[in-house]
């Protein structure tokens, strides 16, 4: 069962994220250099951090899957990557808007975090096609886990390389994360970060519950209507046969 604490988690998300955005709007002062525009930070950076942590979480689940061979770990890894990709799309779009607002271009190569995020996003976008193109269920899960582990190891290396490649061009314009934020901004930022992490957890649990429900319905259908009642599969997501 995945839906047990879903309601409590949803309420916590609602309160924290709304509170965080409210703090960002009314409590945190305007940035001296960037002015009002800097408020994008409170949605963009937490999204990015949470998406990356989601990828790492997926890699950990994939390791568990390879060690134990249980398909529920594969499902966890799959859902984590799925959610992180959605968060990642939001990161790229909000980052692009920020670049447009502060430099007048929709895309700049001087912002190493955003560039390396794009590379990571491109890599993980291949996860679903990889799953779809392998027929054998067991093999599909194993190969997907190998991919998740490789990509998880790639994330920090990629950040290191891209950041080093561009450090000479620009002084850091954005006061991201811990560096140089005013205390009141910091409070708002951390509340937003917590809210975003809770949102990720809620959506992850939500998706897991949905997958579990669908598996239960399929089992029920097989019991009541026999094999001829089974509907053809349309997705490459892992199946739960024995929960």
């Amino acid at each position: 069962m995945y839906g047990t604490r879903l309601r409590a988690l949803s309420i916590a998300t609602l309160i924290t994220l709304t509170g965080g955005f409210a703090l960002a709007a009314f409590y945190a002062p305007e940035d001296a250099d960037q002015g009002f525009m800097q408020k994008i930070l409170y949605v963009h950076v937490p999204l990015a951090i949470v998406a990356l942590c989601g990828f790492v979480f997926a890699a950990v689940c994939a390791i568990q899957h390879l060690r134990t061979g249980e398909s529920r770990w594969d499902l966890r890894s799959y859902v984590a990557i799925h959610m992180s990709l959605i968060f990642g799309a939001a990161v790229l779009i909000t980052g692009s808007i920020w670049a447009r607002a502060s430099w007048g271009h929709w895309w700049v190569w001087d912002e190493p975090t955003l560039v390396s995020f794009l590379i990571v996003f491109l890599l993980y976008a291949t996860y679903q096609p990889l799953r779809f193109s392998i027929e054998d269920r067991d093999k599909q899960g194993r190969y997907a886990s190998v991919f998740a582990i490789t990509a998880g190891a790639f994330v920090p290396l990629n950040f290191l390389a891209v950041r080093m490649a561009q450090s000479y061009t620009h002084p850091r314009v954005f006061a991201t994360a811990n560096g140089g934020l005013e205390p009141r901004m910091k409070v708002a930022f951390y509340v937003c970060l917590l809210g975003m992490a809770l949102l990720y957890a809620t959506l992850w649990k939500y998706e897991m519950t949905s997958k579990n429900t669908s598996a239960q319905i399929k089992r029920l259908r097989r019991r009541l209507a026999g094999d001829e009642g089974a509907l053809p599969r349309r997705s490459a997501s892992p199946t739960l046969e024995s929960t």
Partner: peptide
């Protein structure tokens, strides 16, 4: 300010 609104709208 529109850009800030746009970013939150995307979310």
């Amino acid at each position: 300010a529109g850009y800030v609104v746009a970013a939150y709208l995307v979310f």
